[in-house]
Amino acid sequence: MKSILKTVALAALVGVASVGAASAAPIKMGVAAEPYPPFTSPDASGKWVGWEVDLMNAVCAEAKLECEITPIAWDGLIPALTSKKIDTILSSMSITDERLKTIDFSDKYYNTPASLAGPKEASFTADAAGLKDKILGVQVSTIHAEYAQKHFKDAVSEIKEYQTLDEANNDLAAGRLDAVFADAITLDAFLNSEQGKACCDKKGDVADDPAVLGAGIGFGLRKGDDELKGKLNAAIKAIRDNGTYEKFSKNYFDFDVYGK
């Protein structure tokens, strides 16, 4: 009996202690908990790797911040930010007017077009006419999902929304989708993988729509967190100027990912 009481007491203590474990907090960078190569993906040792992780390291070193990665479900990133579970979003999130109503962003750190991928044997153009009566896959609450709703909705037979892009890609390979609409670089990573090469190819970039596709990708921030915003902006500018950005980007891309 005593042992049970002890366990119960211990449990209560552990519960309280783990909640109370506050420390000089590092900046928590929220990363979508999914493979999103080449930007952020978990490797076989459980670490997060990719271009955005390198960017984070460079920015945090420049701004003299201690940063740590906190994986959160993609569609939970903004709630996690507003409820202070994380301090910053580092997850290829585009700066859009819609999101700016709820959260704030740093300056952009990269920008890429959006493009369509489909099965090799099918040939169609990257616009509404090409997608007629097709099943289109997108990741939920992305600019691509919104773009699809705005421009493709009437043409396609169905828009399927996936929790992670990786699942949409998998369903494209499995023949459950006729096309996937996503960020050009990430789609390239998929199309260059073994699975992607076997099944699919790129159908082209879509026409730009700045109102939906936004003005590039930045760190997501809580509104009013201007101190952190200032530091991040200064650091992004600094690593652009001193060549650090170019240096680590070379490991991933043969073009300037910063965009225009």
Partner: peptide
Amino acid sequence: TLVTRQAAGSTK
């Protein structure tokens, strides 16, 4: 379950 999904997604 999540790390399984990540591993599965990364390796297909």
